[in-house]
Amino acid sequence: MAEGMQGKVALITGAASGIGLATTEALIAAGARVVLADRDEKALGALRSRLGEAAVPLVVDLLDLESCAAMVPGALEKAGRIDILHCNAGTYIGGDLIETDTATIDRMLNLNVNAVMKNVRDVLPHMIERGSGDIVVTCSVAGHAAVPWEPVYSGSKWAITCFVQTMRRQLNKKGIRVSQVSPGPVVSALLADWPEENLRKAKESGSLIEPTEVADAVMFMLTRPRNVTIRDMIVLPTNFDI
């Protein structure tokens, strides 16, 4: 029997747009409250007005050490508990490595890898004490295949695949499920950095999916009975070839 979301509290990073927003909307529709962690304060205010009291805005800059460290305590202060942590925020670099400056590489690794590890670490005492919880990380099909036109991004997602699966083994006896969703190309702002030719071909061939289709996969994972863990779900556009 599917597990209900009624009364649960989720904390989602990068919640103001894309996959994070689609998952927020799906969880609220299922009866959960969602703490929307994002750096876009204006967007968070608009979402609170549209989604109502079940949407709890929390302004967070995951690249700022103090703001990142304050996220989980801030969410607990606002919502009282965290049943679900969805580490979704991320950024993208495409193109040859030589074309990328080192500051941009640092930013990507700090957001795509370091922030995820720190967020998971910060929520663990709360979930371990309660003996229950779900941690979902937005990874990518690029974390399963060496994609030659995005070596930094692909490398960051390979790191996350390793991290998620090691944490799953650490925590599966503590009532905490750890999993990841690995989409192919999703219609979102992240694709703005795709090589123009690759993006054009993807659009023409129907090789893109919508954020709602990734959110559907996340909801499937979260609603499985507690004795079932979906360790990874790869969600691809049917016409995407990698």
Rank of each mutant, 00 (worst) to 15 (best):
Ala43Ser: 14
Val187Ile: 15
Ser205Trp: 00
Ser207Gly: 12
Asn88Phe: 06
Ala79Asn: 11
Arg226Lys: 15
Ala22Met: 07
Val141Asn: 04
Lys42Tyr: 00
Leu171Gly: 10
Leu58Ile: 07
Asp101Trp: 04
Ile84Trp: 09
Ala89Tyr: 06
Leu36Asn: 02
Thr91Lys: 04
Ile28Gln: 05
Val56Ile: 15
Ile19Ser: 06
Trp149Thr: 13
Val147Gly: 01
Thr212Pro: 00
Arg48Pro: 00
Val34Gly: 07
Ile19Arg: 04
Ile19Pro: 10
Pro183Tyr: 01
Val113Asn: 03
Glu25Cys: 08
Val187Gly: 01
Trp158Pro: 04
Gly94Pro: 04
Val60Ala: 15
Leu62Phe: 09
Arg226Val: 04
Met5Ala: 11
Ile160Asn: 01
Asp193Leu: 09
Val9Ala: 03
Thr104Gln: 13
Ile84Ser: 10
Val123Tyr: 11
Ser140Pro: 08
Gly20Leu: 11
Val56Cys: 06
Met71Trp: 05
Val9Cys: 04
Asn112Lys: 03
Val152Trp: 01
Ile105Gly: 04
Glu196Ile: 09
Gly4His: 11
Met167Asp: 02
Lys157His: 07
Ala215Met: 04
His126Phe: 09
Pro151Thr: 13
Met219Ile: 15
Trp158Met: 12
Leu58Lys: 03
Asp122Tyr: 06
Ile12Tyr: 05
Val59Leu: 00
Ile93Gly: 00
Met127Arg: 05
Gly18Thr: 06
Gly155Val: 07
Arg169Glu: 14
Ala37Arg: 00
Cys162His: 13
Val59Lys: 11
Ile209Met: 11
Ala79Gly: 10
Met233His: 14
Ser188Asp: 12
Thr91His: 02
Leu36His: 02
Glu41Arg: 12
Ala115Gln: 06
Ile176Gly: 05
